[in-house]
């Protein structure tokens, strides 16, 4: 009988403590390096890059190290006056992904006044389709990620009333699979990242009751491998970002205690680079701001008190969500 599993082995000399100062230094200097090839390649998702870095800094209580006024000015310049949407970078086309990142950043800064809110609302409303789904931009790609972006964005702007919530929920539920999970479209394979998007949508729309909670939570727990790390689909390697997607979903389902927290924490800590700072997808790989945010946010959900509490639905500091008086639904057991 075969019990082999795709997994990694944690080395004895791995980082075992949280290197907060290193991560703060890493993010503060990220992209300032003129030879940073990776950074030039990520211009097309700059807005999300700012969101990852700022949120990570906020969670560490270090956001004063980010150039606040420049960031706000940059966002203002990325809003397209015609459609109302926001782009990844100046001169790029607007997209719902970057519109959300921009709104999240402005919400953290309490500076939503810096953009044309009605324009953003108009843009998101224009992307909803007859079946309740959302386009990502005018080119018509449909994905449950975009449903989540739409409701998260509108709720941060206190304008959830602008779209058809019932249809939004209906579409997301049509993506539920036979294993209780969710994919990107009806029939697409269950995937932990997309489960986060779908559960998050239901959390914001307060329709968590529509889930098969135990079955879904079990599927999510099955993502945990002997190394302690989590994968996103059966028979895939563990990746740090799934610590966030799986655990935030389990938090919304109120079943986070079903995973083995100790070994997961060891895995997350092992993904730190003790020289450069930052977290990577797997121990020993190159770090980036995306995995750095999800590493810190994951540790926060696990109860690490040197990091601020993170809201599992929004992936933003809980204090921001409280200030905005938002109450995303957490399922009661």
């Amino acid at each position: 009988m075969s019990f082999t599993t795709k997994d990694v082995v944690l080395k004895e000399d791995r980082p075992k403590t949280l290197l907060l100062q290193k991560h703060s230094d890493y993010l503060a200097s990220y992209g300032l390096n003129k030879d940073d090839y990776e950074y030039c390649m990520t211009e097309y998702l700059r807005m999300s890059g700012i969101y990852w870095s700022l949120t990570a800094m906020e969670l560490m209580g270090q956001s004063s190290r980010m150039p606040k006024e420049d960031i706000i000015e940059f966002i203002t310049q990325c809003q397209d006056s015609e459609s109302g949407g926001i782009s990844a970078s100046i001169g790029h086309d607007p997209h719902i992904l970057y519109t959300l990142s921009a709104v999240q950043v402005l919400a953290m800064y309490d500076r939503l006044d810096a953009v044309d809110i009605e324009g953003i609302v108009r843009y998101i409303v224009s992307l909803q389709q007859e079946d309740g789904s959302f386009y990502g931009d005018k080119w018509g790609e449909i994905d449950t990620r975009f449903s989540f972006c739409a409701v998260m964005c509108l709720s941060l702007l206190q304008r959830l009333d602008a779209i058809d919530i019932n249809k939004t929920v209906e579409f997301v539920l049509s993506c539920m699979n036979f294993d209780g999970g969710f994919g990107s479209k009806p029939g697409s394979e269950s995937h932990a990242g997309l489960i986060y998007c779908c559960v998050g949508t239901l959390s914001i729309c307060k329709r968590m009751d529509a889930l098969h909670a135990d079955e879904l939570a079990w599927w999510l727990c099955e993502r945990q491998l002997p190394s302690g790390g989590l994968n996103g689909r059966p028979e895939k390697l563990p990746d740090l970002c799934y610590s966030w997607w799986v655990m935030s979903s389990l938090s919304m389902l109120n079943r986070i205690h079903w995973v083995d927290k100790k070994s997961l924490e060891e895995f997350i800590l092992a993904c730190q680079d003790n020289e450069t700072g930052g977290f990577s997808d797997r121990p020993g790989d190159i770090t980036d701001p995306f995995h750095t945010l999800f590493g810190l946010a994951g540790l926060s959900l696990l109860g690490n008190t040197s990091i601020k509490p993170v809201n599992p639905t929004y992936c933003m500091p809980q204090e921001t969500i409280d200030r905005l008086k938002l109450k995303p639904q957490i399922l009661q057991i």
């Binding site: 940073d36 030039c40 211009e43 700012i50 150039p67 420049d70 100046i90 001169g91």
Partner: peptide, 18 residues
């Protein structure tokens, strides 16, 4: 050339070809 606004949030260095 790339315009990041008056004070670039992050200075980006591209290869010459890029």
């Amino acid at each position: 050339p790339e315009d990041d606004g008056p004070n670039p949030v992050v200075v980006i260095a591209h290869s010459e070809k890029f």
